[in-house]
Design a protein around this nucleic acid. Structure first.
Lengths: 335, 335
DNA sequence: GCAAGCGGTTCACAGACACCA
DNA sequence: TTGGTGTCTGTGAACCGCTTG
């Protein structure tokens, strides 16, 4: 592998000059530049990003920490982040948070070490306080995706989880349902907590109209919710006339279990969920669900990241809310 | 951020000694080691991976290039790779191939620059020859996943695409179907090409029994195949009595379009696909499909990568074939 | 423990040349 | 002619943080 030394020797100039033509900085005579470029091409020279990062204290890259590779929309997030990074001519560095707080923290640190210009944090397990503390302890800015954090922790762009549940449940109530159930993961992550809270708030808000709410705990995942639903049913519990599911995969697994017990969706029970997964229009029945605009969210996060790097401006936190996509899994309740 | 200099100054030893305690190399007196460790902890010192990689010419990491973030199983691959890397105490570096050959190439190079010990290549667009050439042009080994390449290009672990189609179609033939159709992407990638070829081979093989085959082109994706199927039907073409779909999402989109035309699956047309996506048991009807053991494949790839790094042994290429998972989308053809 | 790297960046500065008083 | 002033280009060397003989 050719180094800058090989190049400057072959071109008969100094390292500094070569460095300038690489980076397009300073002044270099046209003829010199061309000569150096010719030599670089001939030697098939590629500057070492490692050395560049070490010397300049910047890797011209943006770091992305993902907490988990399962579940609905991390794929869209990854893809969009990658595309945006490509467009802004920056490298994208990933780090895996392994779905636990400690690893999320060290993922961030590993990216800091690598001299990213900024970090996009898609955290599932870190608390707000931890994120604030983390942001303080490092020198590069953090953009938090999917979570609302105080502005002192930098920019955050999030999705209003509680509101999504309310919107989903509200739709059910509008349809005349009063005995609602929520099926979703136990409140051990911020997202799960917010969604569950949203449900409780909704029920409380409409309690005077006779709305009641039950909760069935189920992890994310098709099979998981299928089994959870089955167990729930077998234990003698029932769902009322309508269910709001914390995610599309939960809804889908749940519906299958329901059907196996002879309960028809939407005729017997209506179901609304959250995510708008690509497959949700294609299951039986097509899911009425809340769309999470993860692509737009990611795109916006990357845009802000860019501005943050270039101009250092931190916009106010932004909260997206999802649209209700009405399909066929929820219908009017006939008393 | 504390550097090694701060540490050695504070501990009253030389940089070399600090470096030794970091890496556990050479001999360091116990008391010295403890002192240095104490100082490191107190200063919250973290060695710069950049500087380490540059100086030692190895980042103790393994590189993963992914060609695309869409489609069935890249999520499982990512996750398993990440877990395996974690287990072997190595960093995992991702690079995105943006689903085109040129970017896949430069993704590999960017990882080489970063001094990965080895590269796992999950390529969709590179030709065999390109991979061989690439392997020759760089100094670190490549493990190719999902594609069978000559051994001179290093280890490869792949999935027998053509065989999967034959197995799927074979199942249909066993069920008494003779008029088969294939729905899948045009042969512009190696995977798509192999699957289509497999279909043609199968038809040819059973031609003497009166088996015929038609082809309907459709990109990957639920919506894409839904639309392709609709267009195909509207143009007056028909599918025969059974379909093998190149992927679960294609099958699912196709089935929906079929149903909308009043064609029932499996009563009127049987469908078999490939992938065994997590959602495939949960759609209507549950999909009979070929399981692609992407998790095992990735795990094995990482295992070999480890051996390759440690002992330099290159095993023979391995080819996995998938199991047929019989569910409900394909039934006996009643003449 | 010393010192020479790893492969770059960067800044202070020098040589060359033109221009003008 | 001389010297003073600038503007371009390019050089040398220190330095980034760590490894290793």
């Amino acid at each position: 592998m050719a180094t800058i030394n090989d190049v400057c020797r072959a071109a008969g100039v100094s390292k500094a000059t070569v460095s300038r033509v690489i980076n397009g900085t300073g002044q270099v005579k046209q003829s010199t530049r061309e000569k150096v470029e010719a030599v670089m091409a001939q030697l098939n020279y590629r500057p070492s990003s490692l050395a560049q990062a070490l010397a300049s204290q910047s890797a011209n890259s943006i770091g992305l920490v993902i907490s988990d590779f399962t579940g609905g929309y991390f794929g869209s997030l990854l893809k969009q982040a990658s595309v945006s990074a490509e467009q802004m001519g920056k490298q994208l560095l990933f780090a895996d948070g392994h779905n636990n707080a400690e690893d999320e923290l060290s993922a961030v640190h590993s990216l800091v070490e690598k001299k990213c210009d900024i970090i996009i944090l898609y955290s599932r397990k870190l608390s707000c306080e931890q994120i604030v503390a983390l942001s303080r302890s490092i020198t590069i800015p953090i953009v938090t995706v999917g979570r609302l954090v105080p502005q002192e922790a930098g920019f955050s762009i999030s999705f209003d989880q509680a509101n999504a549940v309310k919107k989903a449940g509200g739709h059910l109530i509008e349809l005349g349902h009063k005995q609602l159930s929520y099926i979703g993961p136990k409140p051990s992550t911020p997202t799960a907590t917010l969604r569950l809270q949203g449900f409780h708030q909704l029920v409380e808000q409409y309690a005077h109209q006779g709305v009641t709410g039950k909760v069935c705990l189920s992890p994310f995942g098709f099979m998981e919710s299928y089994q959870a639903t089955k167990a729930y049913l077998e234990s003698g519990d029932c769902f009322g006339t309508a269910i709001v599911a914390a995610a599309d995969d939960i809804a889908i697994g749940c519906i299958k279990a329901l059907r196996e017990q002879g309960i028809k969706v939407p005729q017997d029970i209506s179901v609304v969920s959250i995510d708008n997964d690509p497959c949700s229009p294609f299951v039986e029945p097509p899911l009425t669900t809340i769309d999470i605009p993860i692509k737009s969210i990611t795109e916006r996060a990357m845009e802000v990241a860019k501005q943050l790097i270039e101009k250092g401006i931190i916009p106010k936190p932004e909260v997206y809310s999802g649209d209700l996509i009405i399909r066929e899994s929820a219908i009017k309740h006939l008393p």
